[in-house]
């Protein structure tokens, strides 16, 4: 048997996919050919390693997104189950979601508190555009959302120039954090539309905007 044939069909041999006589010829060739033997060992190792590769973990906010969508799409038929998540769980999940950001955490809780106060107090009293259009994602359910949004946009515009000097890895990490936050915001907004008076959800929306803003501050 030639090396070339062995090398071309080695995976069949490893996966026991060869007829008996051919497998015997194979084994005989391998005993006498160092190169093919080496290759066999390498492929066998790859094949073995593939069976216990490490598992990856998605961001903590993913379950929240999933359960929100299920709820928002009205897939729950049991009325007892319409609000399945306990409040503690919700809050815990947001906290955990924070920890999953790739960028360094906020310097201190104080900075966040300050942001929250700044965004919250200005927003609530200044504008209340409670009547909303039905354009799903753009529907503003948080009274001060349009303000928060434009504040972020302004900050982000000023920020974009800096991003050009980043390497691809940094940019990807930043973009993925930002898109994760956007998605959490969408999920939160959807849920808020169904429970507009939920103080905790309102607080979460604000926190998420503060997080977005903090993301820019940290990336500087």
């Amino acid at each position: 048997m030639e090396c070339l044939i062995v090398r071309n069909t080695l995976s069949d041999y490893l996966d026991s996919g060869l007829p008996e006589t051919e497998a015997h010829q194979f084994a005989a060739h391998l005993t006498g050919c160092e190169n093919c033997q080496k290759l066999e060992l390498q492929l066998a190792e790859i094949r073995m390693a593939a069976r216990d590769l490490p598992l990856h973990t998605p961001s903590k906010a993913l379950w929240m997104r999933i359960s929100n969508t299920i709820e928002a799409e009205g897939m729950l038929t049991d009325p007892r189950a319409t609000r399945p998540m306990k409040k503690e769980t919700l809050l815990d999940q947001w906290r955990n979601a924070w920890a999953s950001l790739s960028f360094p955490q906020l310097a201190g809780a104080g900075a966040l508190a300050a942001l929250l106060v700044a965004f919250g107090s200005v927003g609530i009293y200044r504008q209340f555009n409670g009547v909303v259009s039905m354009g799903a994602m753009q529907t503003s359910v948080l009274p001060e959302e349009s303000k928060l949004k434009s504040e972020f946009e302004r900050k982000f515009d000023a920020f974009k120039a800096k991003m050009t000097s980043w390497d691809a890895q940094r940019r990807t990490a930043f973009e993925s954090d930002l898109s994760r936050l956007e998605k959490s915001l969408d999920a939160c907004r959807t849920q808020l539309a169904a429970h507009p008076q939920d103080a905790q959800l309102i607080e979460q929306m604000r926190q998420l905007y503060a997080e977005k803003s903090a993301l820019l501050d940290q990336a500087k």
Partner: peptide, 23 residues
């Protein structure tokens, strides 16, 4: 039957493998 806590347990059990496969 709409039991979200049961579904959450399913999520907890399998989400890393599903995510790893997708990734």
């Amino acid at each position: 039957r709409g039991d979200m806590s049961a579904f959450e347990q399913i999520y907890e059990r399998h989400h890393r493998r599903v995510y790893s496969l997708c990734l």
